[in-house]
């Protein structure tokens, strides 16, 4: 479903030589596969997710969603792909502070042309499923970390994207809340055929993954 060939990414630090984070990375993930990517801090896990999710551009190499080389399409097309085919979950939740929990979730439908009332209904249903229905009118600052991540999860899956990119989604959560998120991701992959690419260095997440890869020296390899 998703394929990356020869991805290279370099960052200029402003001090010293540029840092080459990805060095011709290749990756292929099947539809419905639950892939965990691990690696030490600074190894480029988040950078890989940003490239795969079209949040950043690679210096070289290409990314394909199915048969479409998405890394080469225009800005507008990339925006449409991000909105309709990719769901992001971030370690720091990244909810919008000025919106309520319900508005944060429903926001995912705004840019893909969905019906607003329907989006709100689906958002409420998702929040109820994740056990935060009573927090719909609360702002992120009024929610606990676990609640914020559940809201972020709802936002990521509202449009039922075929690909979920999760960047350390349980890194800031206690074990109970982390398990809820991991189970939901697993259920998505199993029940809906959603491709899940999870970046983590928590070994407990590996057991639920179909495959685990380690990012070492800018390339992926079996751990």
């Amino acid at each position: 479903m998703i394929r990356a060939i020869g991805l290279t990414k370099t960052f200029s630090t402003g001090v010293g030589a540029p840092v080459v984070v990805l060095k011709g990375l290749d990756l292929e993930v099947k539809a419905g596969e639950y892939l965990a990517v691990t690696g030490p801090s600074g190894s480029g896990k988040s950078t890989l997710l940003n490239l795969l999710g079209l949040l950043d551009g690679a210096d070289s190499g290409g990314i394909w969603f199915g048969e479409e080389r998405v890394s080469s399409v225009g800005r507008r097309r990339q925006a449409l792909i991000r909105g309709s085919q990719v769901g992001f979950i971030f370690q720091a939740f990244h909810l919008i502070a000025s919106l309520t929990a319900l508005e944060n979730v429903a926001l995912a439908a705004r840019y893909v042309g969905g019906d607003r009332a329907d989006a709100k209904r689906r958002a409420q249903a998702l929040l109820a499923r994740l056990g935060v229905a009573h927090r719909t009118r609360h702002y992120p600052a009024q929610l606990s970390g676990g609640e914020q991540q559940r809201v972020a999860f709802c936002r990521a899956v509202l449009n039922d994207p075929p690909l979920i990119l999760a960047d350390e989604p349980t890194g800031n959560l206690d074990e109970d809340h982390a398990r809820v998120i991991r189970e939901e991701l697993r259920a998505r992959a199993r029940e809906r055929g959603t491709t899940v690419l999870l970046v983590t260095h928590h070994p407990e997440a590996f057991g639920e993954a179909d495959r685990v890869l380690a990012l070492v020296d800018g390339r992926l390899a079996e751990p």
């Binding site: 999710g53 949040l55 800005r75 507008r76 925006a79 449409l80 792909i81 991000r82 909105g83 309709s84 992001f88 990244h94 919008i96 926001l107 995912a108 705004r110 840019y111 893909v112 936002r155």
Partner: peptide, 9 residues
Amino acid sequence: IKRALGATD
């Protein structure tokens, strides 16, 4: 975040 959610320019 909004661009990650699909917002165009």
